[in-house]
């Protein structure tokens, strides 16, 4: 049963991801991407990472994609106003995305062994365990990430100020 759910989710996520890429209207792209995020959140639940799933939905589907949609609606991009890309640009895009894919596959290939062995503890994805791990074993990277976010926030405030005197 788990396998069936996994396969359904996986197929839907691949299809919606492809639709996201191939959709003509940018708003449709965003909506397909939201569906993809939902299926990925479903995969997290299957892996017992409920916290990660919900955070994924709150942050990605609930906030970031809303902002994307927001901007797209404000810009009102549609078929008429969308600039036509030349074949050279398309080729460049394909090469860039393809090299990213190769890099990702290479990185995944090395880590598959580790992921298989970590599966033993079903409680690993729950909030308590995640919190303990974050605040003990990974406290330095966690804090560094926090400082990064703080810097980003300060930067956003600076950019957003109207009369900026540098």
């Amino acid at each position: 049963m788990t396998l069936a759910i996994f396969l359904t989710l996986a197929v839907i996520s691949v299809i919606t991801a492809l639709l996201m890429v191939f959709a003509k209207s940018p708003v449709h792209s965003v909506l397909y991407l939201i569906l993809t995020f939902f299926t990925i959140a479903g995969q997290y639940v299957l892996l017992n990472a409920q916290f990660l799933a919900v955070v994924h939905i709150i942050v990605y589907a609930g906030a970031i994609m809303v902002l994307f949609l927001f901007v797209l609606m404000l810009l009102n991009l549609n078929k008429d106003t969308e600039p036509q890309k030349s074949a050279g640009w398309r080729l460049a895009g394909a090469i860039a995305a393809g090299s990213l894919l190769v890099t990702m596959v290479g990185a995944m290939h090395g880590s598959i062994q580790i992921a298989g062995t970590e599966q033993s503890n079903p409680q690993v994805g729950l909030v308590e365990n995640l919190g303990k791990v974050l605040f003990t074993d990974f406290v330095v990277p966690f804090e560094i990430a926090g400082i990064l976010f703080l810097a980003a926030m300060v930067g956003a405030v600076l950019v957003g100020k109207k009369d900026l005197k540098v």
């Binding site: 916290f51 919900v54 955070v55 939905i57 709150i58 589907a61 609930g62």
Partner: peptide, 9 residues
Amino acid sequence: LYILGLSSL
């Protein structure tokens, strides 16, 4: 968190 997530959806 589930409720916060859905309310944002």
